[in-house]
Every structure is written in C-alpha cells, then in structure tokens.
C-alpha cells in the first residue's frame, strides 16, 4: 500500500496524506454516535409502543361499537363519527374546552411574561421567587384541584377573607353557579400554567442583549416603548412555544376539573377529555369514546399547527 498516489493529470506526483489511523478520540466518537443511535432507537421504539400504537388502536376502535366489558365488538363504519354531529353534550364540552383554551392561554401568557419581567434579576431572592413561580407547574393536578377546592368552597379561604374584609356581604358561589364555576376553573388552570410560561419567558428574557436596552435608553425610549419594541419582539420565539403548549395542555385537561368541580354544576365545566372518559368507562361506549378522542386529537393538531404557523410568520415579521 503506497502512501502517495499519482495525480490524474500532471506529472508531478502529489503527496497525499495517508488515511489517518482511527485515534482513540475517533473511536470514542464512533462509539458515542452508535450509542446515540441505540438510545434514539429505544426512544423511537417506546414512542411507537406507547404513543403511535395506542393511537392506531384507538383509531381502529373508533370504527367499532367496542364495550370495555365485552370481548367482541362489531365494525360500525362511520356511525360513531356521524353520531358526534348530533351529540349536544359533546358540542357543549368542546365549546367549553375551546373557550377555556383561549382564555387560559391568553391569561397564562400575560401572567407569564409579567412575572418573567419582574423576576428577571440575578440576586438570590429573585432566584427563590423564580422557584416559587414555577411551583404551580410541578404540583400534581389532583393536588392543585383539592387545594383550590378548599379555597373556593362556600366556607373556603377566599370567601372567608372577602367577607372578613368587607368586600362582599355574603360568600360568593364560586363553584356552584355555571358561569362562576367556568371562570373559577379558568383562573385555577391559568395559575397552574403561569408557572410554565414564566419560566419560558424568563429564559427568553435572559438572552436579550442588554446593549439593546442601553441603546434605546440613549435614544430616549421609555420603559413602555422598550417593552413593546424590544422585549415583546425578542421573546417572540418563546411566545410561539408557550402559546402552543398552553393550548395543547388545556385542550386535554382532565385532572384539575375532575377534582375541582367533577364537571359540574350540571356539566357546565365538563371538558372534552372528561367526556371521553365518561363515555368509555361509565357509559361503556369505548368505540364512540375513541371516535371523540380521535376528533379531539385532530382538533388539537389543527389548532396547534395553525397557531404555530401563525406565530412563526409573526416572528419573521418582527
């Protein structure tokens, strides 16, 4: 094996460096790449087993009259999907879920950016406050539901405080009237999601070069102008992520509502996810529940993709 090779054209032999012997570092890299491949394969396998396969099974089930208590089921074609058109309870739950998704997404993101701006400091006390701000996101939804139920019931903390300081004469029926219960659920879910949005916006704020603020100050920009022209524009990618994830989270909301209101009063706060569980395991209509789940999946995907596309275009425009 020669260490040189003749140039194709020309007479002067060109010295070509010999192929490098794999070094220890390269071996390690190959090993790492191989390892990463295996890890990716495992991840993909788990994704297939736990996400793709169940979705496909649900899709298949949505064309049947499957009952969780019976071994046999029959193919019913598009009957389940046709039934959804006339299902008034489904329409009500979808309407409420969408309303909640929009309201909570707006509220959680406004709160998130406000908290992030307030907490965008480096001292220990602010770092502690940041941890506190993120707490709602790490607490289990069931616990959040129980805690807020204690706060919002007739003799709860909120009513006691409001009556005691004379803001209201009588306790407010936070969870007992349909409209107030819907609002209460919205407030609780916004509080939970604000923990997540705060962290997302905080991370984005910390990547804004301070020179931008310095330059704008020299140009005489007010704090409001700086927020509008610099902060909001620079956190646009974070807004895309935060809004999309907030929407998806609310569209599949189940635990908090179940504990807080059980979907009541009179189904006023029933989410589509709760309705799906009720159909599957109380009404024993697994097939129809699967069809509704497929529709919810599609709806979530359409909304998430549309919103992401819209916000991405906005990012480019800014």
């Amino acid at each position: 094996m020669t260490a040189t090779r003749q140039a194709v054209v020309g007479v002067t032999p060109v010295a070509v460096p010999p192929p490098r012997r794999p070094t220890r570092t390269r071996f390690r890299r190959i090993r790492q790449d191989g390892g990463l491949g295996v890890i990716a394969a495992v991840g993909l396998g788990l994704y297939l087993v736990f996400i793709v396969v169940p979705v496909l099974l649900s899709l298949r089930s949505s064309f049947t009259d499957q009952n969780p208590l019976k071994a046999q089921s029959n193919f019913v074609g598009l009957n389940n999907y046709r039934e959804m058109v006339h299902d008034s309870e489904l329409h009500a739950t979808v309407g409420y879920t969408l309303l909640l998704a929009v309201g909570v997404t707006v509220a959680a993101n406004v709160l998130g950016i406000a908290f992030a701006v307030l907490l965008n400091r480096t001292s220990l006390s602010y770092r502690t406050l940041r941890t506190i701000a993120f707490l709602p996101q790490v607490i289990s939804g069931v616990i959040v539901g129980f805690v807020w139920k204690t706060i919002l019931t007739q003799n709860g903390l909120l009513n006691n405080v409001l009556v005691h300081i004379g803001v209201v004469g009588q306790p407010i029926d936070w969870l007992g009237t349909p409209h107030l219960a819907m609002l209460s659920v919205g407030i609780v879910v916004s509080w939970v999601l604000s923990g997540f949005t705060t962290v997302v916006y905080l991370a984005a704020l910390q990547h804004i070069p301070p020179e931008l603020y310095d330059a704008s100050s020299i140009d005489g920009a007010s704090a409001g102008q700086q927020f509008r022209m610099i902060t909001l524009r620079m956190v646009a990618p974070a807004t895309t992520i935060s809004v999309t994830i907030s929407l998806i989270t609310v569209l599949k909301l189940y635990d908090i509502i179940t504990v807080l209101t059980s979907g009541g009063p009179a189904n006023a706060t029933e989410s589509t996810a709760q309705y799906i569980v009720k159909l599957a395991f109380t009404s024993d209509r697994f097939g129809y529940a699967s069809a509704v789940a497929m529709a919810l999946l599609l709806l979530s995907a359409v909304i998430a993709l549309s919103v992401t596309g819209l916000l991405r275009r906005r990012e480019v425009g800014l």
């Binding site: 139920k149 919002l152 019931t153 007739q154 003799n155 009588q170 306790p171 407010i172 029926d173 936070w174 969870l175 007992g176 009237t177 009541g264 009063p265």
Partner: peptide, 16 residues
C-alpha cells in the same frame, strides 16, 4: 337550601 349549596362539599356539609 343553604346559600351556595352547590358550592359546599359533601365533607363540609356534614361538618356544617
């Protein structure tokens, strides 16, 4: 019924 009866939990109703 007591005021805000739908805003009272079962556990609280027993206590009340």
């Amino acid at each position: 019924f007591e005021d805000g009866a739908l805003n009272v939990s079962y556990a609280n109703s027993i206590t009340n």
